[in-house]
Design a binder for these strands. Structure first.
Lengths: 336, 336
DNA sequence: GCCAACTGCTAATGCGCTTGAGTGCACTTA
DNA sequence: TAAGTGCACTCAAGCGCATTAGCAGTTGGC
């Protein structure tokens, strides 16, 4: 900036005013300063900026899942890619961290806050008993919870949420219409808020329809558990005629397991995946799946966080309800 | 720090000395200061630290691939997870960015450099004609190239490399021993350095063995192209008896396509995936795959970057050659 | 008994930027 | 004509830390 000031023949403050679009300099000077800055390829040092109270132009994202579960799930990369797209417009950086568990994640937030490393954070995988909203409230760190339910207890946090309940209801609708009365929902991690919402909705929908043989089983999202649970429930008697998997990885694993056990899909058992991805289109039969636009989810979340950083009040916004894309893995229930 | 200084009854400089392990304070004072700092939960502001020339304790990672290709590939999340593990030990942050292409990626490096956002970067997907090493050299940004060949032209850059040539040779060995003489290698992006190394090695190995019907076809790594190429090559006459896919996603897509076309695996055609993941174990038959430890790859790269940041000279380190894990998708070639 | 060297600490400066408090000037208004 | 009012700009302080120079007090050597 000193260089720019010298070459433009003004003071450093004038340069600051000019470059930040503040009043206090004439348009002529502003243009001149801008030109010189451009010429010199100047970019403000984030460190210096941060030090004088401007924020660090960085948002944080922590992923607290065991490393090996991280592998195949297509959701997160899509989500992050969407987040980036929006952040890049304002040249905001994304500080990314993998954590062991939620406690570890909280420690990361504390550290980031103490070190002034981020202006705000994006929180994923909200849980039923979640210490994070309280912590973020306490730290005063702007945050957007991705995939949570609107949270009235933390008016400082924004929420971007998908209507899991509505989606589950529509899946049950679909399956019921095909004559399915014995349905098993192979859910994800029991502690996650959306897992619980899905389970609760399934139970409510079943009761409403008088279906008694409908249940949920929780897992860790891995292909291993997906396969194991599938083996167990299909071995029961009477076996379910429809399986709903909470992610694509388990659905595919379950499909393979069903085949191993001699179940034909969809003649003997229907399979639905709660996540659409290339994976679902790569197996035989192609998997019927709930499609949501994960990148758009990320874009929405990033936009909300930027709004928060701009001082706008927190709010809860919904993203479109995922729709069931019917493919070859769902069909009429076989008569008992 | 002012607080700490006051409570410990010393000057701010003494606090700085004490907390940074520099000489100039007695052990007693150091301990006292440390205790107070701990009590207050003090962490140095990265911004202030950076401003006084200490570096920003952050490394950058740019992923330049089209967003939709990002989805299922298991490699990157594993890699990043390994990187994190090592960086976290020193509380280094990871600034992550998705870019459109290499030109965009270069712009990101320039910006990061000008804004003093990172102390160094990790570069992935090195290319045959790659502008990045030159740029990073020019900027003087410490960097580790992941998956490149040792690069004598850029002595400032470290390289962490896998012996693709050796791995390809061992795969060809294996297939040749099973009697395969018609092999197609469904490669990844043609511009990537490792793609070219694999192609070159395959050609050399084929010549050495007098195999004339061996070739490579490049793709964009997507399941779509994997399937399309598979359809094309299996439709040729005579059809190949072995297919080597450069990633797990294409291998799985190819497997499904082969089944569609009435080819039995491995009786009619053998399939090898150059990437092992849950995906490979979820399909029927399970895919024989080259297993490498992607997380370890990341850990090694992160360690090299930290060494570079510590002022150690750049070097090239190898990671173990991936080994072929035989599963159900490879078998003896059917006699012509 | 005097200088040198060391120890344990403090004061002051600067990193690159923002910002509130001026300053000088032309121009209006009573 | 004096006072008032904007405008375009400059000055200087300060953000939180690292670092260099310096300053008492002690020890050691001769």
């Amino acid at each position: 900036m000193k260089d720019i000031a010298r070459r433009a023949g003004v003071s450093e403050s004038a340069v600051s005013f000019a470059l930040n679009g503040r009043p206090g300099v004439s348009e002529a000077t502003r243009a001149r300063v801008r030109r010189v800055a451009e010429q010199l390829g100047w970019r403000p040092s984030t460190a210096a900026r941060a030090l004088s109270g401007e924020g660090v132009a960085t948002v944080g994202f922590v992923l607290a899942r065991p490393a090996d579960t991280l592998g195949v799930d297509s959701f997160f990369l899509q989500l992050v890619s969407g987040i980036q797209e929006v952040l890049a417009e304002r040249h905001l950086g994304l500080l990314f961290q993998v954590a062991e568990d939620v406690a570890d994640e909280c420690a990361v937030y504390r550290r980031w806050w103490a070190e002034h490393r981020v202006d705000g954070v994006l929180v994923v995988d909200p849980r039923a008993e979640d210490p994070r909203p309280d912590l973020l409230d306490e730290l005063g760190l702007p945050a957007v919870v991705i995939g949570g339910a609107p949270d009235v207890r933390h008016p400082g946090l924004s929420t971007v949420w998908a209507d899991d309940a509505g989606a589950m209801a529509s899946v049950v609708d679909e399956l019921a219409a095909l004559g399915h009365r014995r349905i098993v929902h192979i859910a994800g991690l029991p502690g996650l808020a959306h897992t619980q919402r899905r389970i609760a909705t399934l139970r409510a929908e079943a009761r409403r329809r008088g279906l008694t043989e409908v249940r949920s089983v929780t897992t860790d999202y891995s292909d291993t558990e997906g396969a194991a649970v599938t083996r167990r429930v299909l071995g029961g008697s009477p076996a379910p005629t429809a399986l709903i998997y909470d992610n694509d990885v388990m659905a595919v694993a379950g499909l393979a397991t069903a085949a191993d056990l001699g179940f034909r899909v969809p003649q003997d058992v229907s399979v639905v995946s709660w996540e659409d991805s290339a994976l679902c289109r790569m197996v035989t039969p192609r998997l019927s799946a709930l499609s949501r636009d994960s990148a758009e989810f990320g874009r929405t979340a990033a936009r909300e966080l930027m709004a928060l950083l701009d001082g706008e009040p927190a709010r809860a916004v919904g993203v479109p309800v995922p729709r069931l894309t019917g493919r070859g893995s769902t069909g009429s229930a076989r008569p008992a």
